[in-house]
Amino acid sequence: MKTLTLLRHAKSGWDDPVARDFDRPLNTRGRRAAATMGRHVRELGLAFDAVVASPAIRVDETVVEFERGLGRALTPVWDRRLYLAAPTTLLDVVHECDAASDALLLIGHNPGLEELTLLLVPGGDGVLRAAAEEKYPTATLAEMTFDTDDWAAVTAGSGRLTRFIRPRDVDPSLGPDGD
Score class of each variant (00 low, 15 high):
Lys2Gly: 00
Lys2Leu: 01
Thr3Leu: 00
Leu4Gln: 02
Leu7Lys: 00
Asp15Glu: 15
Asp16Leu: 14
Pro17Ile: 09
Pro17Asp: 09
Val18Thr: 13
Pro25Tyr: 15
Asn27Thr: 00
Gly30Gln: 04
Arg31Leu: 11
Thr36Ile: 09
Met37Gly: 01
Gly38Met: 12
Val41Phe: 05
Arg42Phe: 05
Arg42Ser: 12
Arg42Ala: 15
Leu44Met: 15
Ala50Gly: 01
Val51Asp: 02
Ser54Val: 13
Ala56Met: 12
Asp60Lys: 15
Thr62Phe: 04
Thr62Gln: 07
Val63Tyr: 10
Val64Cys: 05
Phe66Asn: 04
Glu67Gln: 02
Glu67Ile: 01
Arg68Ser: 13
Leu70Lys: 01
Leu70Glu: 10
Gly71Leu: 07
Arg72Thr: 13
Ala73Trp: 04
Leu74Ile: 05
Trp78Ser: 05
Asp79Ile: 02
Arg81Met: 04
Leu82Lys: 14
Leu84Lys: 12
Ala85Phe: 13
Pro87Met: 08
Pro87Asp: 08
Thr89Val: 15
Leu91Asp: 08
Leu91Met: 12
Asp92Val: 00
Val93Asn: 03
Cys97Val: 14
Asp98Phe: 03
Ser101Gln: 11
Asp102Glu: 14
Ala103Phe: 00
Ile107Leu: 14
Ile107Gly: 01
Ile107Phe: 02
Ile107Thr: 05
Ile107Val: 15
His109Glu: 13
Gly112Leu: 13
Glu115Asn: 10
Leu116Ile: 09
Pro122Phe: 12
Gly123Trp: 04
Gly124Val: 02
Arg129Met: 02
Ala131Leu: 15
Ala131Arg: 15
Glu134Leu: 15
Lys135Arg: 15
Lys135Pro: 01
Lys135Ile: 13
Pro137Asp: 07
Pro137Val: 08
Thr140Phe: 06
Leu141Gln: 06
Glu143Phe: 01
Met144Pro: 00
Thr145Leu: 04
Phe146Ala: 09
Asp147Gly: 03
Asp147Cys: 03
Asp149Phe: 02
Trp151Phe: 03
Ala153Met: 03
Val154Lys: 11
Val154Thr: 08
Ala156Trp: 04
Gly157Lys: 08
Arg160Gln: 09
Arg163Ile: 03
Phe164Glu: 05
Phe164Met: 13
Asp169Lys: 10
Ser173Glu: 06
Gly175Phe: 11
Pro176Gln: 06
Pro176Arg: 12
Gly178Glu: 12
Gly178Cys: 03
Gly178Thr: 08
Asp179Ala: 06
Asp179Met: 05
Asp179Lys: 06
